[in-house]
Simulated assay, not measured.
Amino acid sequence: MDFLVYVLLLLFGGCLGGLMAGLLGVGGGVILTPIQYFLLLSYGVESNVAMTVSFATSLAVIFVTMIRSTRKHHLNGMVVTDFLPYIMFLGFLGAVLGAFVSVNVDVSVLKVLFGFLCIFTVFNMIFVKYPDNDDHISKSVFMHSLLGLVGGLLCGLLGVGGGIIMIPILTLVLKYPTHKAIGTSSASIIATSLGGMIAYIVLGWNVGGLPEFSLGYVNLLQFFFLTVTSTVVAGFAANISKKVDAKKLKYMHILIVLYIGLKMIGLV
Protein backbone atom coordinates (compact mmCIF):
# COMPACT_ATOMS: atom_id res chain seq x y z
CA MET A 1 0.00 0.00 0.00
CA ASP A 2 1.24 3.48 -0.90
CA PHE A 3 2.37 5.40 2.20
CA LEU A 4 0.27 8.46 1.27
CA VAL A 5 -2.89 6.32 1.15
CA TYR A 6 -1.86 4.78 4.48
CA VAL A 7 -1.55 8.23 6.08
CA LEU A 8 -4.80 9.53 4.57
CA LEU A 9 -6.76 6.54 5.89
CA LEU A 10 -5.34 7.10 9.36
CA LEU A 11 -6.19 10.82 9.25
CA PHE A 12 -9.72 10.01 8.11
CA GLY A 13 -10.08 7.38 10.83
CA GLY A 14 -8.95 9.94 13.39
CA CYS A 15 -11.68 12.33 12.21
CA LEU A 16 -14.36 9.67 12.69
CA GLY A 17 -12.98 8.64 16.08
CA GLY A 18 -12.85 12.26 17.24
CA LEU A 19 -16.41 12.85 16.09
CA MET A 20 -17.67 9.90 18.14
CA ALA A 21 -15.62 10.97 21.15
CA GLY A 22 -16.77 14.57 21.20
CA LEU A 23 -20.37 14.15 20.09
CA LEU A 24 -21.33 10.89 21.82
CA GLY A 25 -18.83 10.42 24.67
CA VAL A 26 -17.56 7.06 23.42
CA GLY A 27 -13.94 6.35 22.63
CA GLY A 28 -14.29 5.55 18.94
CA GLY A 29 -12.44 2.23 19.12
CA VAL A 30 -15.08 0.70 16.86
CA ILE A 31 -13.68 2.93 14.09
CA LEU A 32 -10.01 3.13 15.06
CA THR A 33 -9.40 -0.59 15.60
CA PRO A 34 -10.57 -2.03 12.23
CA ILE A 35 -8.84 0.68 10.20
CA GLN A 36 -5.53 -0.01 11.94
CA TYR A 37 -6.00 -3.77 11.71
CA PHE A 38 -6.55 -3.59 7.94
CA LEU A 39 -3.52 -1.36 7.45
CA LEU A 40 -1.23 -3.54 9.58
CA LEU A 41 -2.28 -6.67 7.70
CA SER A 42 -1.53 -4.91 4.40
CA TYR A 43 2.03 -4.35 5.66
CA GLY A 44 2.49 -8.02 6.56
CA VAL A 45 1.96 -7.92 10.33
CA GLU A 46 0.71 -11.26 11.70
CA SER A 47 -3.04 -11.29 12.42
CA ASN A 48 -2.99 -11.77 16.22
CA VAL A 49 -0.25 -9.19 16.69
CA ALA A 50 -2.06 -6.75 14.38
CA MET A 51 -5.26 -7.03 16.42
CA THR A 52 -3.51 -6.45 19.75
CA VAL A 53 -1.54 -3.50 18.34
CA SER A 54 -4.81 -2.07 17.00
CA PHE A 55 -6.45 -2.40 20.42
CA ALA A 56 -3.50 -0.83 22.25
CA THR A 57 -2.96 2.04 19.82
CA SER A 58 -6.68 2.82 19.79
CA LEU A 59 -6.58 3.21 23.57
CA ALA A 60 -3.60 5.57 23.30
CA VAL A 61 -5.47 7.70 20.75
CA ILE A 62 -8.64 7.61 22.85
CA PHE A 63 -6.70 8.77 25.92
CA VAL A 64 -5.44 11.93 24.20
CA THR A 65 -8.70 12.58 22.37
CA MET A 66 -10.79 12.29 25.53
CA ILE A 67 -8.64 14.84 27.37
CA ARG A 68 -9.60 17.49 24.81
CA SER A 69 -13.20 16.31 24.58
CA THR A 70 -13.62 16.30 28.38
CA ARG A 71 -12.17 19.80 28.68
CA LYS A 72 -14.83 21.09 26.29
CA HIS A 73 -17.62 19.17 28.06
CA HIS A 74 -16.43 20.49 31.43
CA LEU A 75 -16.41 24.08 30.18
CA ASN A 76 -19.96 23.49 28.96
CA GLY A 77 -20.99 22.26 32.43
CA MET A 78 -21.67 18.71 31.28
CA VAL A 79 -19.31 16.74 33.56
CA VAL A 80 -20.68 15.53 36.91
CA THR A 81 -17.66 15.42 39.22
CA ASP A 82 -19.29 14.23 42.48
CA PHE A 83 -18.48 10.54 41.96
CA LEU A 84 -15.96 10.85 39.15
CA PRO A 85 -12.87 9.94 41.26
CA TYR A 86 -14.45 6.57 42.17
CA ILE A 87 -15.31 5.81 38.53
CA MET A 88 -11.86 6.80 37.27
CA PHE A 89 -9.84 5.01 39.94
CA LEU A 90 -11.72 1.71 39.56
CA GLY A 91 -11.78 2.19 35.79
CA PHE A 92 -8.00 2.50 35.67
CA LEU A 93 -7.50 -0.65 37.77
CA GLY A 94 -10.10 -2.56 35.77
CA ALA A 95 -8.45 -1.66 32.47
CA VAL A 96 -5.03 -2.82 33.67
CA LEU A 97 -6.52 -6.12 34.86
CA GLY A 98 -8.51 -6.57 31.66
CA ALA A 99 -5.47 -6.04 29.44
CA PHE A 100 -3.41 -8.63 31.35
CA VAL A 101 -6.29 -11.12 31.12
CA SER A 102 -6.83 -10.48 27.40
CA VAL A 103 -3.33 -11.58 26.37
CA ASN A 104 -3.53 -14.78 28.41
CA VAL A 105 -7.04 -16.12 27.72
CA ASP A 106 -9.38 -16.59 24.78
CA VAL A 107 -11.77 -13.64 24.91
CA SER A 108 -14.08 -14.92 22.13
CA VAL A 109 -16.68 -16.12 24.65
CA LEU A 110 -16.51 -12.76 26.45
CA LYS A 111 -17.09 -10.97 23.15
CA VAL A 112 -20.26 -12.97 22.51
CA LEU A 113 -21.54 -12.35 26.03
CA PHE A 114 -20.78 -8.67 25.68
CA GLY A 115 -22.61 -8.65 22.35
CA PHE A 116 -25.78 -10.03 23.93
CA LEU A 117 -25.42 -7.53 26.77
CA CYS A 118 -25.32 -4.72 24.21
CA ILE A 119 -28.47 -5.99 22.49
CA PHE A 120 -30.26 -6.30 25.84
CA THR A 121 -29.14 -2.74 26.62
CA VAL A 122 -30.54 -1.51 23.29
CA PHE A 123 -34.03 -2.77 24.19
CA ASN A 124 -33.83 -0.93 27.51
CA MET A 125 -32.59 2.22 25.78
CA ILE A 126 -35.55 2.12 23.40
CA PHE A 127 -38.29 1.55 25.95
CA VAL A 128 -37.00 3.36 29.06
CA LYS A 129 -37.42 7.14 29.28
CA TYR A 130 -34.16 8.99 29.85
CA PRO A 131 -33.95 11.53 32.71
CA ASP A 132 -34.18 15.16 31.61
CA ASN A 133 -32.77 16.80 34.76
CA ASP A 134 -30.31 16.23 37.64
CA ASP A 135 -32.93 15.57 40.32
CA HIS A 136 -32.64 11.78 40.37
CA ILE A 137 -28.90 11.19 39.83
CA SER A 138 -27.86 8.26 42.01
CA LYS A 139 -25.81 9.06 45.11
CA SER A 140 -24.49 5.48 45.41
CA VAL A 141 -20.69 5.35 45.68
CA PHE A 142 -20.84 1.57 45.22
CA MET A 143 -22.75 1.77 41.92
CA HIS A 144 -20.46 4.44 40.52
CA SER A 145 -17.40 2.42 41.56
CA LEU A 146 -18.86 -0.74 40.01
CA LEU A 147 -19.52 1.17 36.80
CA GLY A 148 -15.88 2.24 36.66
CA LEU A 149 -14.65 -1.30 37.25
CA VAL A 150 -16.90 -2.82 34.57
CA GLY A 151 -16.03 -0.11 32.07
CA GLY A 152 -12.33 -0.57 32.76
CA LEU A 153 -12.48 -4.35 32.38
CA LEU A 154 -14.21 -4.00 29.00
CA CYS A 155 -11.61 -1.45 27.98
CA GLY A 156 -8.70 -3.76 28.75
CA LEU A 157 -10.34 -6.95 27.49
CA LEU A 158 -11.86 -5.70 24.23
CA GLY A 159 -9.91 -2.56 23.35
CA VAL A 160 -12.85 -0.17 23.73
CA GLY A 161 -12.81 2.95 25.86
CA GLY A 162 -15.73 1.73 27.97
CA GLY A 163 -18.19 4.48 27.04
CA ILE A 164 -20.27 2.03 25.01
CA ILE A 165 -21.52 0.53 28.28
CA MET A 166 -20.93 3.49 30.62
CA ILE A 167 -23.42 5.83 28.96
CA PRO A 168 -26.37 3.38 29.02
CA ILE A 169 -25.66 2.62 32.70
CA LEU A 170 -25.26 6.30 33.57
CA THR A 171 -28.62 7.11 31.97
CA LEU A 172 -30.69 3.99 32.63
CA VAL A 173 -29.39 2.98 36.06
CA LEU A 174 -27.78 6.05 37.62
CA LYS A 175 -30.32 8.48 36.13
CA TYR A 176 -27.96 10.96 34.47
CA PRO A 177 -29.41 13.28 31.81
CA THR A 178 -28.06 12.40 28.36
CA HIS A 179 -25.73 15.37 27.90
CA LYS A 180 -24.19 14.94 31.36
CA ALA A 181 -23.81 11.18 30.83
CA ILE A 182 -21.80 11.96 27.68
CA GLY A 183 -19.54 14.46 29.47
CA THR A 184 -19.02 12.25 32.53
CA SER A 185 -18.34 9.21 30.33
CA SER A 186 -15.69 11.19 28.45
CA ALA A 187 -13.89 11.99 31.69
CA SER A 188 -14.12 8.38 32.85
CA ILE A 189 -12.61 7.10 29.63
CA ILE A 190 -9.45 9.15 30.25
CA ALA A 191 -8.71 6.78 33.15
CA THR A 192 -9.77 3.52 31.50
CA SER A 193 -7.86 4.19 28.29
CA LEU A 194 -4.75 5.25 30.24
CA GLY A 195 -4.80 2.05 32.31
CA GLY A 196 -5.26 -0.13 29.24
CA MET A 197 -2.59 1.72 27.29
CA ILE A 198 0.03 1.37 30.04
CA ALA A 199 -0.74 -2.32 30.45
CA TYR A 200 -0.43 -3.01 26.71
CA ILE A 201 2.90 -1.17 26.58
CA VAL A 202 4.26 -3.33 29.40
CA LEU A 203 2.83 -6.55 27.99
CA GLY A 204 4.28 -5.93 24.53
CA TRP A 205 7.70 -4.73 25.61
CA ASN A 206 9.68 -7.80 24.49
CA VAL A 207 7.21 -9.26 21.97
CA GLY A 208 8.57 -10.09 18.53
CA GLY A 209 6.94 -9.34 15.18
CA LEU A 210 5.71 -5.87 16.11
CA PRO A 211 5.57 -3.19 13.39
CA GLU A 212 8.26 -0.50 13.31
CA PHE A 213 8.03 2.45 15.71
CA SER A 214 6.18 0.46 18.37
CA LEU A 215 6.33 1.08 22.10
CA GLY A 216 5.18 -2.23 23.45
CA TYR A 217 1.91 -2.92 21.62
CA VAL A 218 1.33 0.79 20.93
CA ASN A 219 2.40 1.79 17.43
CA LEU A 220 3.64 5.37 17.58
CA LEU A 221 3.33 6.01 13.82
CA GLN A 222 -0.35 5.13 13.70
CA PHE A 223 -0.92 6.88 17.02
CA PHE A 224 0.51 10.13 15.65
CA PHE A 225 -1.57 10.34 12.49
CA LEU A 226 -4.79 9.22 14.18
CA THR A 227 -4.34 11.70 17.04
CA VAL A 228 -3.60 14.68 14.77
CA THR A 229 -7.17 14.73 13.47
CA SER A 230 -9.05 13.07 16.34
CA THR A 231 -8.10 15.72 18.91
CA VAL A 232 -9.09 18.61 16.65
CA VAL A 233 -12.43 17.09 15.64
CA ALA A 234 -13.25 15.98 19.21
CA GLY A 235 -13.11 19.56 20.49
CA PHE A 236 -15.49 20.85 17.83
CA ALA A 237 -17.80 17.86 18.24
CA ALA A 238 -18.02 18.37 22.01
CA ASN A 239 -19.23 21.92 21.47
CA ILE A 240 -21.80 20.70 18.95
CA SER A 241 -23.00 17.98 21.33
CA LYS A 242 -24.54 20.41 23.82
CA LYS A 243 -26.69 21.88 21.02
CA VAL A 244 -28.03 18.55 19.74
CA ASP A 245 -31.42 17.40 21.02
CA ALA A 246 -31.09 14.70 23.70
CA LYS A 247 -33.46 12.37 21.80
CA LYS A 248 -31.28 12.50 18.71
CA LEU A 249 -28.21 11.68 20.79
CA LYS A 250 -30.12 8.77 22.33
CA TYR A 251 -30.94 7.36 18.89
CA MET A 252 -27.30 7.68 17.83
CA HIS A 253 -26.22 5.76 20.94
CA ILE A 254 -28.80 3.05 20.25
CA LEU A 255 -27.46 2.53 16.71
CA ILE A 256 -23.84 2.37 17.90
CA VAL A 257 -24.56 -0.03 20.78
CA LEU A 258 -26.64 -2.25 18.47
CA TYR A 259 -23.84 -2.32 15.89
CA ILE A 260 -21.25 -3.18 18.53
CA GLY A 261 -23.47 -5.96 19.89
CA LEU A 262 -24.04 -7.53 16.47
CA LYS A 263 -20.34 -7.21 15.62
CA MET A 264 -19.27 -8.93 18.85
CA ILE A 265 -21.66 -11.80 18.16
CA GLY A 266 -20.35 -12.03 14.59
CA LEU A 267 -23.51 -11.06 12.71
CA VAL A 268 -21.93 -8.04 10.97
Rank of each mutant, 00 (worst) to 15 (best):
V5L: 10
L8H: 08
L9G: 13
L10K: 07
L11C: 06
L11A: 06
F12Y: 02
G13L: 09
G13S: 15
G14M: 00
C15A: 15
G18D: 06
L19C: 14
M20E: 11
G25A: 10
G28I: 02
G28L: 05
G29Q: 00
V30G: 12
Y37D: 07
F38P: 10
F38W: 05
L40V: 13
V49W: 00
A50R: 00
T52P: 00
T57P: 13
A60S: 07
T65L: 04
T65G: 03
M66R: 08
S69Y: 01
L75N: 14
G77S: 05
M78A: 07
V79R: 08
L84N: 08
G91T: 02
L93N: 15
L97H: 00
L97N: 00
A99L: 05
F100D: 04
V103Y: 02
N104Y: 03
N104F: 01
V105D: 07
V109C: 03
V109R: 11
L110I: 10
K111Q: 15
V112P: 09
L113V: 14
F114W: 03
G115M: 07
F116S: 13
L117A: 12
F120C: 11
T121A: 09
V122W: 03
F123R: 09
Y130N: 13
Y130A: 14
P131H: 01
D132N: 09
D134A: 12
D134R: 11
D135P: 04
I137K: 07
S140C: 00
V141T: 14
M143D: 10
M143I: 04
L149G: 10
G151V: 03
L153T: 00
L157Q: 02
L157E: 10
G159A: 03
V160K: 00
P168G: 03
I169M: 15
L170K: 12
T171Y: 02
L172A: 05
L172W: 02
T178S: 05
I189T: 13
A191T: 10
S193H: 05
I198S: 08
Y200Q: 06
L203E: 15
G204T: 10
G204L: 12
V207F: 02
G208V: 04
G208W: 02
G208A: 13
L210D: 05
L215D: 04
G216P: 05
N219I: 11
L220E: 03
F224S: 08
T227E: 02
S230P: 10
V232E: 15
A234V: 04
A237F: 00
N239R: 13
S241V: 02
S241K: 00
K247A: 02
H253P: 05
L255S: 15
L255E: 13
I256L: 15
V257C: 13
I260N: 02
L262V: 13
M264V: 05
M264A: 08
I265L: 07
I265G: 08
L267C: 11
